[in-house]
Simulated scan of single mutants.
Amino acid sequence: MDKTLEFTTKSPRQIKQGDTETMFTFICKSAGSAVDLTQATSITAKIGNVSGYLRSQSITITSLAALNPGWLNLQPMPDLISGLPAGNYQLEIWVTDQAGTSIYPSDEPLGFTITNNIENESGASITTIAFDDFVEAMNKAASTIAKGDKGDKGDKGDKGDKGDKGDTGPQGEPGQTGPQGDKGDTGTVDNAGLTTAPAFVALETQVNNSAVGTNLLTGTSGTLQTYSGSGWGSGNLSSTNISLISGKTYTARMWIQGYDVPTKLVVRVYTASGTQLAYAIGNVIDANSSGYSTVTWTADSNWTSNVITTLSFVSSQSATHSGQYSELKLEKGSVATDWSLNPSEILTQTDYAKIKAAIVALGGSLS
């Protein structure tokens, strides 16, 4: 069924930076009819921009009591929009009830705008480095660093003697122009200095410790993958050599569908010899059903070895069972956010190429 999300007639479509009082009002429809949101167990507003998901904010079910069917209010709190630069953003409403999760709208997200206030015309930015601006600045620097010092100007030649007064004498010969100074040596670049410069350190920190839902696992995918197994299942879906921090909270989540037996996500840690040290178990996805299996836990001193995520059956199976999974993600904190690639996998694509080109333009190198 086609799901739509619309602003109500009198709702604003934009908000200024720092405004915590403006309230958006939306209406959720399914197949053209307003939906009953009062039966939901949770409602979440999620916002993003052209780069992807940014943040989310919960909407209380009790706030729907005085509203028309399908209507809901969103008053953006500072945690949702603080620090976001002025620009165009997109919004989705995620509604979870006993039947599952519905996302409004079902096609393109609903757009809204954040504008500058009078105190901050340039706007504040999330801790993200704009690669195009970064490359442009580095290339400008290259145009000056690559040039050597200008040679000294040659001495000016002597002027010819003036003839005696009276009859006009012959004009004196002009002096010879002095030789041009030698061109300075081509400037050089300290490659070690470049790669430890604050801009590069800031970029590395951002990549390794993103503020918004960094996926700690590598080799995951947002498209459906097939796994077949018997026994307890325990398919090794991602084996990432990371050490979790004792006392810190982590959340793992994975979409599961198509299995005719109950399944779940299990995160395990083994020693090099194969002894299981610790594990964390997600919620069960019923047979012939689909949904997210999610687990949140606090790591202890055992979580210092290879972390393995597995798709497991609830009971041991004598036959082989097949199904699909996707959106496997392990992240810091107690909230599961939308799936994304590990930042290192993103950096190895076009953005990494741009940075490398900027360094090469300066005469340095980056392997």
Score class of each variant (00 low, 15 high):
3 K>H: 09
6 E>N: 11
6 E>R: 09
12 P>L: 07
15 I>L: 05
20 T>F: 10
21 E>I: 01
22 T>N: 11
24 F>A: 08
25 T>R: 13
26 F>K: 02
30 S>C: 00
30 S>M: 10
33 S>A: 12
37 L>C: 04
40 A>F: 05
42 S>Q: 14
46 K>G: 05
48 G>N: 00
53 Y>T: 02
57 Q>V: 11
59 I>D: 13
63 S>A: 10
63 S>H: 02
66 A>F: 01
67 L>A: 08
68 N>V: 01
71 W>H: 14
75 Q>I: 07
76 P>I: 03
79 D>A: 09
92 E>W: 07
92 E>N: 13
105 P>G: 06
107 D>Y: 00
108 E>V: 11
114 I>K: 04
125 S>K: 15
125 S>D: 13
129 I>S: 08
129 I>Y: 10
136 E>W: 05
138 M>L: 15
143 S>F: 14
146 A>T: 05
155 D>K: 15
160 G>A: 11
161 D>P: 07
163 G>T: 06
165 K>P: 10
171 Q>Y: 03
173 E>D: 14
175 G>A: 15
179 P>W: 02
182 D>P: 15
188 T>G: 00
196 T>E: 09
200 F>T: 00
204 E>M: 09
209 N>D: 08
211 A>L: 07
214 T>H: 00
221 S>V: 04
221 S>C: 02
226 T>I: 04
230 S>V: 02
232 W>M: 14
235 G>W: 06
236 N>H: 15
242 I>W: 09
247 G>R: 06
251 T>H: 03
251 T>V: 08
254 M>E: 12
256 I>S: 14
259 Y>V: 12
264 K>S: 09
264 K>H: 14
266 V>G: 00
267 V>S: 02
270 Y>F: 13
271 T>Q: 15
272 A>V: 11
274 G>L: 12
276 Q>P: 00
278 A>H: 07
282 G>F: 06
283 N>K: 08
285 I>L: 05
288 N>K: 08
290 S>W: 02
294 T>W: 14
294 T>Y: 09
296 T>S: 14
303 W>R: 01
307 V>P: 06
318 S>Y: 06
327 E>N: 12
328 L>N: 08
332 K>P: 00
334 S>K: 04
337 T>V: 08
338 D>S: 14
338 D>W: 05
340 S>M: 13
350 T>V: 06
356 K>E: 12
359 I>S: 09
361 A>R: 08
363 G>H: 01
364 G>D: 09
365 S>N: 05
